[in-house]
Design a protein around this nucleic acid. Structure first.
Lengths: 219, 219
DNA sequence: TAGCCATCTACGTGTTTCGCGTAGATGAAA
DNA sequence: TTTCATCTACGCGAAACACGTAGATGGCTA
């Protein structure tokens, strides 16, 4: 069995150290890199290709869920194991929708973490019991009250539109976004129009609320 | 009267023991569980449903305020009584915003603790005198100096500005707001300018985030 | 009472954004 | 090869924003 190549993405030094300590004496695991932000991670990805990414859900600027979405679209072969302090329904649903392969709370045990890594590495999914309970509970609730699971059309956005969406809800002006992306202001406007249309939203106010609900930005 | 079911959440063994000692010889109180972290507490919540939670404000990882927010959202029927070493304005304001039902300093008496538990159990609020004094003092200070609020500057907004703010973050356009309030669009714009200036914000995106943080709108 | 001040109202001007429509270039898929 | 999605860009009129000014009103107080 080849050693499983892993990249850690978490903004807290202590957490990264903790995970490294948990994994260090396991012969078949090889931590090839770590990043404290989405940007760092994507830079790292240019020179290293991991088998599994351990993703913190709450990262500064771009959330782990956003990272997961992009990975799902661009590098579907990389497995994504999400670590989170939160086990609330919203977080879990959004994480699921972003295409993650597993989800663990941060107070997990070494055994569970190792098991989860092996599971996702071998192409299966792994969800911590409290996570699957939450999912189950939600299904039961929906079945009971006839509610539909909140759905969105984030997946229908293109990579470029995701990028624009992110800058918009960060509060950047159109000219600023145009400058960053080296495109014309008119193009930024066109993308924004497409985003609002695809998400069936009708104002920037709605877009910001949508972004917060879907963990694209943090409050 | 049914016995009031209580869960203690505090990361210090000694504090938990102290509270248990304070409550042990009271017939109508039943401590059904204790947790030393938010995680433990939420795990406990899957098997036990308390009437009242005694929450320490400072917990490792997830603070008591965070716990309170989640409880308010997911289990609004569970009453939340916060215990804190701190009586500073900031803590109190944040605790209030998280939806707690009562707030006590840790050096409270047995009588006061029992009274507070009964009050919140029966659907009322209870704030220790030093807490309400702090709140009162803050209000007086605001009235006196106008805009030196520690937490945010919401208090410095006029009634009209509050009104406009609400409509704006609801996603209404300026002409629509003008129509509703029977004032000119230009006036709406002026108010919006004042709001942004007073709150030290620089875009509608920031304003929406601010409004969500301050419970002006729900997601 | 007179003066001060906060509040609500409104406008001017120039820049930016929005809504709606059109459209060329490119690359991947059928 | 044709088709389709995507990214790019512009025109135009309406709306929104930034920054400034300013009249009317009503409450407080020197």
């Amino acid at each position: 069995m080849n050693r499983i190549k892993i990249i850690l993405v978490d903004d807290h030094q202590i957490v990264r150290d903790g995970i490294k300590a948990l994994l260090s004496d396991t012969s078949y695991i090889n931590i090839i890199g770590e990043a404290k932000s989405a940007y760092e991670f994507f830079d790292l990805l240019k020179i290293e290709t991991p088998d599994v990414v351990l993703l913190d859900i709450s990262l500064p600027k771009m959330s782990g869920i956003e990272v997961s979405k992009i990975l799902s679209a661009e590098f579907p072969e990389i497995k994504k194991l999400m670590l989170s302090m939160y086990v609330s329904e919203d977080f879990i649903f959004n994480a699921l929708k972003s295409g993650i392969d597993g989800y663990l709370p941060k107070n997990t045990t070494q055994e569970e973490l190792l098991f989860a890594i092996k599971e996702v590495y071998e192409g299966r999914e792994y969800f911590n019991k409290s996570i699957s309970d939450t999912i189950l509970k939600s299904y039961v609730k929906n079945a009971k009250y006839g509610n539909t699971v909140s759905d969105n059309n984030l997946g229908s956005l293109t990579k470029r539109e995701h990028e624009i969406l992110f800058y918009v809800v960060e509060g950047l002006s159109n000219p600023k976004i145009a400058e960053i992306l080296s495109i014309s202001v008119r193009t930024v406007e066109t993308h924004k129009t497409s985003i609002l249309r695809k998400l069936d939203l009708h104002s920037i106010v709605d877009l910001v609320k949508f972004a917060i609900k879907n963990n694209i930005i943090e409050l």
